[in-house]
Design a protein around this nucleic acid. Structure first.
Lengths: 126, 126
DNA sequence: CATAACAGTATCCTTTTCGACACTATATGC
DNA sequence: GCATATAGTGTCGAAAAGGATACTGTTATG
């Protein structure tokens, strides 16, 4: 977001759904938020939690989350630098959504990133 | 999805969150699913619900949703053609997520597509 | 003296996404 | 005989997103 991929809000009434996911799409945003649910983290701590994220992308995603008011960034005037990221109250208010996504994902998604065949059969059978 | 923008699943344990939103990101997917919550719709009915979507994009998004097993596509051997789209059981299982996104969006997002100032203050005040 | 840790930047490049626009075939209604 | 509705497809191009790699300055540690 912040440069709004989902930015046409004249599509009532589904638009608020779009707008909401617009804030958490972007390759790494939801994972970042998910990890911050457990508490404040420093830049490199997040990096270690999320393998494969480059510093450039991490900065980028964190800045967008901050711009959207979902996280707080606290800089300590130290050297070497210390920067802490934490959920803002607004970010915290997404907790139930993030947890719902996690539960759904755990139940329905295989390691290859697609709903599993068996899952689909389970649902068909139901 | 289907060509997996969110496709690195070695990032345990937040990866299932990513995987789940990976299925519903893509410019129009969540809105489509949201509208299908109310029942089966034909191609042009969806088009009318979602202003601004081009037929090309709508086809594209519907095919990906179908490939991911979230919706069913039923073609009637008629002319002029008749094609009905409906949620699969797997798609239906996302209902609570979609509704949660809608509620959150309604509460926190202004018409410009960003969290409202007042909303952020409300949360700060809380 | 050299190295590691911190929190990033800068530059370049490729891939993906999205939108505009034109076009298809057939049957029905006027 | 012409327009309209159906459910799309095809091509093109612009813009955005994302990845690779190298680099910054300072301090503590060995």
């Amino acid at each position: 977001m912040a440069k709004a991929r989902h930015s046409r809000f004249d599509c009532s009434p589904g638009c608020s759904v779009e707008a909401a996911i617009g804030l958490i799409d972007g390759k790494w945003k939801s994972v970042i938020l998910y990890h911050l649910l457990s508490g404040t983290l420093r830049f490199n701590e997040i990096r270690r939690h999320i393998v494969n994220v480059t510093p450039r992308m991490l900065t980028n995603q964190l800045r967008e989350l901050e711009a959207d008011g979902l996280i707080n960034r606290k800089v300590y005037a130290q050297v070497p630098p210390k920067v802490e990221y934490s959920l803002s109250p607004l970010g915290r208010s997404m907790e139930s959504i993030l947890l719902a996504l996690k539960v759904w994902g755990d139940e329905n998604i295989g390691l290859y990133g697609k709903p599993t065949e068996t899952t689909q059969r389970d649902h068909e059978a139901a």
